Each structure stands twice: as C-alpha cells, then as structure tokens.
Amino acid sequence: EEKLQADNEYPLLDAHKVQHASFVKAVNELKDMLDEEEGPSEAFVEAVKKNIVEWLLNHICVWDKQVAQFIKEK
C-alpha cells in the first residue's frame, strides 16, 4: 500500500505511514496483553474490537478511500 502511494506521489504518504505505525503498535500491545493474561479474556476481546476492528474499518473507509480517489483522479 505504501509503495503504491509512493509510486503515485501521494501527498499524504507520511501521514498514512503514521497510521500504519499506530496499527502495528496496537497489534504489539494486544500481543503483550494476550501473553500477560495467558489467553483471550473479555478485556482482550474488547481491546481487539476497539483497536483492530474499528481501526481497520476507519482506515479503509477513510484513509484508503482517499488514496483511491487521488489515484483515480490522477
């Protein structure tokens, strides 16, 4: 995804990279939480929903659509 943006000189590439980095951080934090709790607790499931599902939906529906529109107009 980032390569596609770079190849098309997408002006918000750096901001998009920040979004991806925050996702990686959230996944790592969830992994740590899962390790500490020795399995998926109710709190873990809620954290996955909040930090992964909601993030992905927002990212795809907002950020990725902006990229698609930019490339389409280009």
Rank of each mutant, 00 (worst) to 15 (best):
E1C: 05
E1W: 03
E1Q: 07
K3V: 07
L4M: 15
L4Q: 15
Q5M: 15
A6D: 10
A6V: 07
D7W: 06
E9M: 03
E9C: 03
E9K: 12
P11N: 10
L12T: 08
L12S: 05
L13S: 02
L13I: 13
D14V: 04
D14G: 02
A15C: 08
A15T: 07
H16P: 02
K17R: 10
K17Y: 03
V18L: 06
V18E: 12
Q19Y: 03
Q19M: 09
H20A: 08
H20R: 03
A21Q: 11
A21T: 04
F23Q: 00
A26M: 00
V27F: 04
N28T: 03
E29Y: 01
L30R: 00
L30D: 00
K31C: 07
D32H: 09
D32L: 11
D32P: 02
D32K: 12
M33G: 04
M33K: 14
M33H: 10
M33D: 01
M33Y: 02
L34V: 03
D35W: 01
E36P: 01
E36W: 04
E36S: 14
E36A: 15
E37V: 02
G39M: 12
G39L: 14
G39C: 14
P40Q: 12
P40S: 14
S41D: 10
S41P: 05
E42G: 05
E42H: 10
E42V: 05
E42M: 06
E42K: 12
A43H: 10
F44D: 00
V45C: 11
A47T: 08
V48A: 05
V48H: 01
V48M: 05
V48D: 00
V48G: 00
K49L: 01
K49Q: 11
K49W: 02
K50G: 03
N51K: 15
W55G: 00
L57R: 11
N58D: 12
H59N: 04
H59F: 14
H59K: 14
I60S: 08
V62E: 12
V62T: 10
W63L: 06
W63N: 13
D64Q: 08
D64K: 07
K65Q: 15
K65H: 06
Q66R: 13
Q66F: 09
V67F: 01
V67S: 05
Q69S: 11
F70S: 01
F70W: 11
I71F: 07
I71A: 05
K72G: 02
K72T: 05
E73T: 11
E73V: 06
K74V: 03
K74A: 14
K74P: 04
K74D: 12
